[in-house]
Design a protein around this nucleic acid. Sequence first.
DNA 1: ACCTCATGTCCCC
DNA 2: TGGGGACCCTGAGG
Length: 587
Amino acid sequence: MGPTARAQFVYNRRRRRSGGRHAVEEASDEEEQRQDSSSSSEDEEDEAEASGEEVADDDDDEEEEEEEEAAVEPAAEEDPAAAAAGEKRGGRKGRITISLKKVCKVCKRTGHEAGFKGAVYIDCPMKPCFLCKMPGHTTLTCPHRVAMEHGVIPAPRRNTNTSLDYVFQSQIKGKISMVKPKFLIPNQLESGNIKFHQRRVTCLEFHPTNNNVLLSGDKKGLLGVWDYVKLHEKITYDSVHSCILNSMKIDNANDGILYTASSDGTISCTDLDTGIGSPLLNLNPNGWNGPSSWRMIYGMDLNTDKGLILVADNFGFLYFLDRRSKTRIGHPILIHKKGSKVTTLHCSPARPEVLLSSGNDHYARIWDTRKLEANSPLASLAHGRVVNSGYFSPQSGNKILTTCQDNRIRVWDYIFGDLQSPSREIVHSHDFNRHLTPFKAEWDPKDYTETVAVVGRYISENYNGVALHPIDFIDTSSGKLLAEVMDPDITTISPVNKLHPRDDILATGSSRSIFIWKPKTEDELTEERTKQKAKEYVYGSGSQKKTNGKHDNSSDDDSDGDSGRKNKKAKKTRFTCTTKGKGKSKV
DNA sequence: ACCTCATGTCCCC
DNA sequence: TGGGGACCCTGAGG
């Protein structure tokens, strides 16, 4: 590639990135603004730009500079007026430099650009770190990303060696198996279901008894029932709800019945075989009267002991439903700030009368449902932002795991201990984005030690030139990343994840698609270990300790240019679900 | 290879 | 305290 060709390439690339917007700046050699910081008072932006570049171009200063020079020539060609002006001046001064300013699409300032460079996202230096939200560094240099593996860093453990800890230990010791079962990460893509749903998947649930059945809900309210072993056996019911399906629960006592909660303000109970449903609750009996009065249901859980369904709306109220009589019990109780959304409800698996709610008012709260009144929580757990979810640990119910929009996963080790502050805060990228289903870190229901949690990751990582958003397995007792699960075929973000209650299977909802993951077979693992050994032998030990062999984070291959993000050379999809067994509708 | 839009929360006025 | 504009890694459909 000759210099002119390269210049043109750089120019085109830049135009593409900045969406056609560009600023042409004229400057003579003497006035090179890079050098001249003292006389730049005429332009505030220049100052910001200079300081911005210092941060942003940390790693590839030279390259940027080269591009700047290279971009001069085509810029003059492209804009005749600028070129003419340049010539005029140039004639006078002898030589002229026209530099094409970079325009940042994030802050609209010039001098730097945010966006993907290959598979690596370059931050806007004017914004705080996208991962930990602290100013002074970018996501690429965030200590939470660099210091430990991929944005997961533990906060120091509190409440250690207290008497409560002792009680906790002795209390759960009888319940947990002494031999920790071998933990297998389902990191091998078993099957992908393309275009099963028409809109993004919002919730997933495994059938509690029928091992191979996965239930899924989407933004349109479509309910999917899918046997992922007999792939053709899939059914969709489109008239259960009219908009976002937020939560699904199956009663263990009657596992043919599915309860669903939706933003259409209804709770529905659907027969899984026939798809015939009946509404249990409708919070909008008078229909649409504008957004200020429309009630939506996000949080829902079952109290199987009492045959109750607990439901919470987007105005902060909790409702009780009797499962059998299908009637409301009592009056709604305000459990979160009035007018704020309750995001999840969870009844403790060990003590079903203990309820955990999380809400948009930046709190998660623990309640005793036997004596429930507004403003009477057993505890209020403060968070930095909106709490996406809060769950009791799956076995003892003694731990709490919350996901908050301040990019932190919080863990409380013992609910009867000091709840003032979490036992741990784990910085993890799961930002809010209006286009994504909120991320929810969930416990592995099979893990008797109650440590493993799964959560999708927002920011991407460069995996051999492809930007992928993995699904993280986190050890909540240390904050360490146990595994990151990804596949080159899945380039979309995966906010919805569900672990199978008994098998080592992970279901993922990513955009419109559903994926099933299984652990690698023993043969595959052996092969991988062999490769890993060979790699270590070649490169020396120490740096190669990733759980997933596919991944080489140090790779900074920009040869793909802009298209690096899209996986153009992705290997063939292992399985693509055809339109066979098209969905049927409710009668 | 563009453009448009859906749309929840934050933050500032 | 409330309304309105802004918004960083979206993704489907046109």
